[in-house]
Design a protein around this nucleic acid. Structure first.
Length: 271
DNA sequence: CTTTGCACCTGTTGGC
DNA sequence: TGCCAACAGGTGCAAA
């Protein structure tokens, strides 16, 4: 499901539900995610008050009194709040029950996601420690991006999707931002000017803001914390549109593979 | 250090 | 219509 807008949409939907609540219990039905879900998780969480629900890159951070529950959705994960929880369905691996009976249910068919526990500063966890700036935060700028990539030879799109350069931009939004900035996905980083980086940073921010406002992109199974789908897939200009006419100039969109991921672009608008 | 490609896993799709 | 290789929102890691 998730790039940054989908995780953020989930977070916003869940904040009013978990805020001020205490975790009554946890039940792990299948610990086989990307890394095994800690066996002692249920004991750890019971009785813990939820202090905050944050997001860093594509990680959801449930801040509790004695530590942080780190949740990642991989490709197909969702976390939904259920006030009348039905019997567990396929691929539903974990339940967190709040003190008012609401159940947060984690579902992940492909099991690329993760649910991990860490004692206090979650930012020091190995998975979070080397993340680059938040794309919607003040540390991401044309200058920061340019200095991070300008000596590299890899394709610009791969650099955009590298969480060390900017955190949380995946295949959809990298493709969309490159189109809006008029830059080809395969352009070598060392041929991207500071001015182009500034345009690209603006495009990344714009497309992420619009996607969050639209509730994220629902391609197959993404829903937010209350079960609602997103609608930003209707606004995609290049992602998944191979062969279709460019919405700006009408030229058929091309596709290439970068790092094993499909990348659609307009051969006329993007240079 | 940089870059490339694989691995993890299940469900869906496109092309024959 | 049916089958199956290819592909799908991510990312850590090994190898070159």
């Amino acid at each position: 499901m998730p790039e940054l807008p989908e995780v953020e949409t989930t977070r916003r939907a869940l904040v009013p539900i978990v805020q001020g609540r205490t975790i009554a219990g946890a039940k792990v039905y299948d610990a086989r995610l990307r890394w095994p879900v800690p066996r002692e998780l249920a004991d750890r969480l019971a009785g813990e008050a939820v202090l905050r629900l944050d997001r860093r890159a594509r990680y959801l951070l449930l801040r509790l009194e004695s530590g942080t529950l780190i949740v990642h959705f991989g490709m197909t994960g969702t976390l939904r709040a259920l006030s009348q929880p039905p019997p567990r369905g396929p691929h539903e691996h974990l339940d967190l029950t709040l003190d008012n009976g609401v159940v947060l249910r984690y579902r992940d068919p492909r099991r690329f996601g993760a649910v991990l526990w860490t004692a206090h500063p979650a930012e020091h966890h190995p998975l979070l420690a080397s993340l680059g700036p938040e794309p919607l935060g003040p540390d991401f700028s044309g200058a920061s991006l340019h200095s991070a990539i300008h000596r590299r030879r890899i394709a610009l799109k791969l650099a955009l999707m590298d969480n060390r350069n900017v955190a949380g931009v995946g295949n959809i939004y990298a493709s969309e931002a490159l189109f809006r900035a008029g830059l080809r996905p395969a352009r070598p980083c060392n041929r991207v000017s500071l001015a182009a980086c500034e345009r690209l940073v603006g495009a990344v921010r714009e497309v992420l803001d619009e996607a969050i406002a639209a509730g994220g992109s629902t391609l197959r199974d993404y829903v937010d914390g209350t079960g609602k789908p997103g609608y930003f897939q209707l606004e995609h200009r290049v992602y998944g549109r191979r062969g279709l006419p460019c919405l700006v100039c009408g030229t058929p969109l091309k596709e290439l593979k970068l790092g094993g991921r499909s990348s659609c672009y307009c051969p006329r608008c993007q240079t």
